[in-house]
């Protein structure tokens, strides 16, 4: 260890470095929220319609996700996937399970019962839950990083 640097000072550098990375992630442009909400809505609502429409919805949703994630990555200079940290991973899994449930409900209501308004409503719910889930994930991710040893 350099003679002029105490362990406390070195630990302060570690904390500062982590905070610098977290600070870069504090970027919530409208297009990211809108794109993520639209992608969640399409993924869920699309399942309630005939297969060709469902496939188009999934394709468009994936394309939106790829575009907004690449753009966010380019703007912030950082990247983190949803499943790497401990607590935040559960938020991602939880959101995935909820969306999956809404997809199944859309299939049942839209394709089997002919209730087209249900998949549309599910899509709107998924859009809101997606944006809220993303915020929850980021909050938990910060806690994960700040509680690193």
């Amino acid at each position: 260890m350099p003679a002029e640097q105490t362990p406390q000072e070195a630990l302060a550098i570690v904390l500062e470095g982590r905070e610098q990375a977290l600070e870069k992630m504090e970027y919530w442009p409208w297009w990211y929220d809108a794109g993520y909400a639209a992608a969640c809505a399409l993924l869920v609502a699309g399942q309630g319609f005939p297969a060709p429409i469902g496939i188009v919805c999934v394709t468009v949703a994936i394309a939106i996700l790829v575009i907004i994630m690449r753009k966010w990555q380019a703007r912030t200079g950082v990247w983190v996937n949803g499943y790497s940290p401990k607590r935040a991973r559960w938020a991602a899994i939880g959101l995935g399970v909820i969306l999956m449930g809404l997809m199944l409900f859309s299939i049942w209501a839209g394709r089997m019962q002919g209730l087209i308004w249900v998949p549309l409503l599910n899509g709107a719910v998924a859009a809101g839950l997606g944006v809220i889930g993303m915020r929850v994930w980021m909050r938990l991710y910060r806690i994960d990083v700040r509680s690193m040893p």
Partner: peptide, 28 residues
């Protein structure tokens, strides 16, 4: 890891999956 500069680089990288070269350069 402990050398000046590298500690901060590793700290930044430990908080993300990937960090862009220019972002690290500007931060340190």
């Amino acid at each position: 890891i402990h050398a000046p500069g590298r500690l901060q680089i590793c700290a930044m990288l430990s908080a993300a999956d990937e960090v862009e070269f220019a972002t690290v350069r500007d931060a340190i």
